[in-house]
Design a protein around this nucleic acid. Structure first.
Lengths: 257, 257
DNA sequence: ACGTATATTGCATCCTATGCAACTTGGCAT
DNA sequence: ATGCCAAGTTGCATAGGATGCAATATACGT
């Protein structure tokens, strides 16, 4: 393990949590937060600045720099499924007015790779790049349900099933049963299992060989639309997921599951 | 300067240029490209993987991971000017059908911080996070023209005025004259100075105290719309920039320039 | 099952990263 | 304009981490 690389990445993570957007952090603040000497932080910042990962906004404050944005966006833009799905997400958002996500599986977590905010100003956990647990999110259930049996078992064995709300699934048996329901009806539901008061439904996006490579979801707080109201939107969600799948090369007659 | 941090960042940069989207690179490939031993790369990857900056897509290939996307997007989302300007960009894009950018100044370069693609499928240099020279881009000219005289002079002195196309400004005197024109008419033009066949117009976005903090641009290839056609859209661009400025707290009567 | 390619790890060594202290620079109050 | 103090930078000695090599382990293709 590379200690100074770890420290450099920790500097980036601290700068991302500035709390004072645009203002950044001073060298002394970073040193205190990371528990290393300010001369060490000064040298790390020098390296990060040279590579445009960090920049100084005045003599005293540091913020994240454009190299980070460029690497991240370049990589996201190259994700085929994200590119082909984007017009579908925008359209679903336009028609329903609610927050739409696209997520993919990374090891045993769901990662948000695109997001279109709903008409209403709603604060949610999700953010592009952010990982979420698969046992209690609609996208997570869809992604795991869509993997080969062996991989599903391996993932299920690795999960910690931590409780997030009163309705969270907290054991492997209940999770397996839920995955069966997801496979059977072709979509998943998150009944405020991950975040209190937030309901989601998600459906799979397949690529040419039928494999589930992403999940599209609709998320909405219960105060705006109750669960029954959200379930009424499932046909539109399924249609959007099929459209995104078609654009990824999938045709329905290939489905064997 | 921190050598192993530099190497770790170089790994990230190499992975961003995979050339085979989604497929990633092997340990041996990275070692060859970076000129270091594969055991060194193995340890760097171990550290990057632990922090989710990198992930393995099978036993042999590495791709950029979600931590990068999360840091980048978290930070971009916190940029006030980007957040308030976004609906304005989307609206300008809807009304004109062309590619709209939002850029800010980072040292003596323009950085794209938001982008809405035009209706036509057009390949352009710009990408969120990517830096561009200020002497031959419309956003660059607007950003520099909008800085205090002392900073303008310092920036102008630092530029290398490298030629990009047949119409690029290549000396300081011509650049200063161009900045005067920009200040006088309130917008800038890029007459294929940065990229052949691509024309742009840009206008300033101000914050509450009148400082220019960003620039909005409209970009279009000459085959879709000639320069005269693009100039006819300047009133809509100016209106959009004023709307974005208003949302950033600027009111017109504060302008002294 | 076997051969080969690729990845990982133990180890010795070199060299880098570190903290400390001194020095420099910048901001602020007077 | 000046002085004081806070913050940032740098020289240096040292500790320890990063490195490459070689051996070993793992994975893939036939």
């Amino acid at each position: 393990m590379s200690q100074s690389l770890e420290r450099g990445l920790a500097v980036l993570a601290q700068l991302a949590q500035s709390g004072r957007p645009g203002d950044g952090k001073t060298l002394d603040e970073l040193a205190a937060e990371l528990g290393v000497h300010k001369s060490t932080v000064s040298r790390l910042l020098r390296t990060l600045e040279a590579g445009h990962f960090v920049r100084r906004v005045n003599t005293r404050h540091y913020v994240l720099g454009s190299a980070l944005f460029e690497l991240a966006n370049q990589s996201l833009d190259e994700l085929d499924v994200r590119r082909v799905a984007q017009p579908v997400l925008v359209d679903l958002n336009r028609r329903t007015g609610h927050t739409v996500h696209l997520a993919s599986l990374e090891a045993h977590e769901a990662v948000c790779i695109d997001k279109v905010d709903g008409r209403h100003s709603v604060r949610m956990y999700s953010r592009i790049g952010r990982r979420a647990p698969v046992h209690c999110t609609a996208v997570g259930k869809v992604l795991v349900a869509g993997q080969p049996a062996e991989l599903r078992a391996a993932i299920a064995a690795e999960l910690s099933y931590s409780r997030k709300t009163g309705t969270t699934i907290t054991d492997a048996g209940a999770f397996a049963a839920e995955l069966s329901r997801v496979a059977e009806r072709g979509y998943a539901v998150d009944n405020a299992e991950h975040e209190d008061f937030i309901h989601c439904v998600a459906a799979p996006v397949r690529r040419g060989d039928g494999m589930v490579v992403a999940a599209i979801s609709l998320s909405v707080p219960g105060v705006l639309l109750d669960l029954d109201g959200l379930l009424a939107l499932v046909p539109e969600l399924l249609a959007a997921a099929e459209e995104a799948s078609a654009r990824s090369g999938w045709t329905e007659k290939k489905t064997n599951r």
